[in-house]
Design a protein around this nucleic acid. Sequence first.
DNA 1: ACAAAAGTGTTCGGGATACACCCATGC
DNA 2: GCATGGGTGTATCCCGAACACTTTTGT
Lengths: 245, 245
Amino acid sequence: MKNRVINPNVSVDCVVFGFDTQSLKVLLIEQKAVEGMSGHQALPGDLVLNDESLDDAAARVLKELTGIEGIFLRQFHAFGDPNRVKQVQDLDWLKSYRDQPEARVITIGYYALVKMDEFQTEASSFAERVFWQDIHEIPELAFDHNSIMQRALDRLREEFENRQVGFELLPEKFTLSQLQSLYEAIEDRELDKRNFRKKVLKEKLVTALDEKQTGVVHKPARLYKLNLEVRSKSPVHGSFVTVKF
Amino acid sequence: MKNRVINPNVSVDCVVFGFDTQSLKVLLIEQKAVEGMSGHQALPGDLVLNDESLDDAAARVLKELTGIEGIFLRQFHAFGDPNRVKQVQDLDWLKSYRDQPEARVITIGYYALVKMDEFQTEASSFAERVFWQDIHEIPELAFDHNSIMQRALDRLREEFENRQVGFELLPEKFTLSQLQSLYEAIEDRELDKRNFRKKVLKEKLVTALDEKQTGVVHKPARLYKLNLEVRSKSPVHGSFVTVKF
DNA sequence: ACAAAAGTGTTCGGGATACACCCATGC
DNA sequence: GCATGGGTGTATCCCGAACACTTTTGT
């Protein structure tokens, strides 16, 4: 059995995006309270172990804190300001949970896209609570997590413009309007319904199913699924579903 | 005076691209030989100090090893395979130059674009020699530097497609043919001369100068300079010259 | 005069954009 | 029957791609 040594200088933080057919959400944790101080809200993240890769660390940490596993996490940036974990409001927490609370920590940011309703979260380890927060209503987070989160969002939008699409954010069966809402939420602009449909159908991104919505108070929409044949040709490292749009 | 402590677990590596009006080059060092073993070729890189940011570390290390300073380095990826510095052929070198040769090291990759002829290199520290190497003729490098280099090249090409152009690679005054060669070298494909000129001129990326080439054995070309007004609107963190093309 | 790269316009097809009305369902 | 989102076609513009010959210099 390996002795799993914690590396005091390197951590990972995960920015997990979800979509509820309306707006973009981010997965946050509330840290367990320390000595009567209320816990801060933060991105799920922790120090890496010396015998695991960064990718493995991100997956492990996310699972330990939130219960979510089996999703693809993409590394997007390393944050290395020497003072990024030195703010007073974070010190008590570090003293309780870290062997070397004063250590210089650089953190590697990962982001991921998930279908919110397919994952149930379960707080554990030092997470008191796990919750989804609308990206327009992010509270003050621990350490430099607000800027990490903002950077992840910028990156998500860049990848999107780059035609590396996020079907991960939709349920398996979806309507074209839901797909359009996803594009609109991420790109933060409105799209023309007819043009959107024309493009999606012409490029065969999706396949129509013999199924319709039920229980809606209007004309029920046709359901579609992703056509997995189509892939981007650009050198992408990892495995988001990447389609030219 | 600060005590500058070396962090044994975090390093930076720099992939500096240059262009000689023909092809893309990368800046490499040859490590000083250890105990009669010939030095390996490698990217310029070293451990970070505990009181400097990652960006500062990249600039410092590049200067210490190659003499190049004052260029913009963009972070592109963190490499964290637990065994990336554990190969036998690198161990002797590590034992000579590192206090903790067995330490787990994750490295942050930076890339940069420079006008080759404006920088003169000067090897120092553990660099025996500094040289430019054509990207099609990269030798076997130390550690995982071949994959870091490849990843940087992929990233350069992505940024290019993203319309974040690299005028940094050209002299201040250049001909449209040189600009076209740059695009062709980076994108690795041929472009139509007339279409290329039309696009560049229509978008006012460049301004014509009242000057021509001299000493060439053919019709002398008009010289142009970059039009600095034009900038990309996407959220770019850093300061490459980024123009929509 | 000849070699070598500079410079210059037109045509065509496809994709992006703009735009308005009828349809099926639940209440 | 009415409120709600679903679903459909056409005209225009702009951009990218394809394509060949004349011009200017140095030798």
